[in-house]
Amino acid sequence: MTHVLTIRDLNVEFIDRGKVTNRPVRGIDLNVSAGEILGLVGETGCGKSLTGLAALGILPRGARRTGKVTMGGDPLQPSSEPDSPAAIVFQNPGTAFNPVFTLGRQLSDVLSRHRQISRSDSKSEVLRHLGLVGLPDPERVFLSYPHQLSGGMLQRAMIAMALLRQPRLLILDEPTTALDVTVARQILVLIDELRHEFGFGVLLISHNLGIIRDVCDRVAVLYAGRVIETGTVDAVMNNPRHPYTRGLLGALPAGRSHGERLSAIPGSVPGNLLSITGCAFMNRCPHAVIDCSFTDPFLTRNGSDQAVACIKEDEL
């Protein structure tokens, strides 16, 4: 299958007055194939969003990216460029639109910026996409202002806006976190259907393991700016190998009975990663040995569908 996104040794550094102040993304490798959903999961502050932004070349000010990002062989254009083959949808549907213009106007603008299309065709194209994402009354939505729609409807409109650009890659950063479960489920089903229909690849960023399990084909677990475990969702979720992945899954209350203790991961994500040597998970890891503080574990393939970055992987 063709890769719509290939990331090799991606690093993101924050620089203040010439000095590197933090390195929240440290050597990430990822592939997303056409028609595939790759999940990116990890605790808050692990570097998920920065990875997504860096892949598109739209980093916040003060951040610098190194490494190689390609899309089917071409270096990826920043997603703000008209011919970028990638689109991104953010978490908060409420703030993503300009409150003073109608949605129709904003979607038409995107269309005219990214595709050569006449004004009259443009409206029907926008309406078609609003219908495509399951909005019940596209004409009404077209004429509505953002505050007149619910969060779920806005998130659908965001996805329609992304689709208008006919992306080959769609990056979704916590697309359902601000939504209620029932609405969230509808959005996820929609994404699942659309990628089959259009064949674009999806990078789905979420801190919610349940969502990842439900919709992704493959998953990459991020910790402290590194992929520490990756593989098919089946393999990683049913047979987690890395202590961090195990910790995350063990922390879920689902299926636990009263009185049973959850296996919480002690401590919290390190804030600054500049001074880290060895395994970044060491201070929270129940299996840590002295070697972990010297050796920086790299992703090692284990069978065909799983790779783990832990020096004690064999013994676990």
Binding site: E43, T44, G45, S150, G151, T177, G271, N272
Partner: peptide, 15 residues
């Protein structure tokens, strides 16, 4: 009436 959305992402610990 649009309900106030209260679901948020986890708190950034080092914000």
């Amino acid at each position: 009436m649009s309900p106030t959305t209260e679901i948020t992402t986890p708190t950034q610990s080092h914000a």
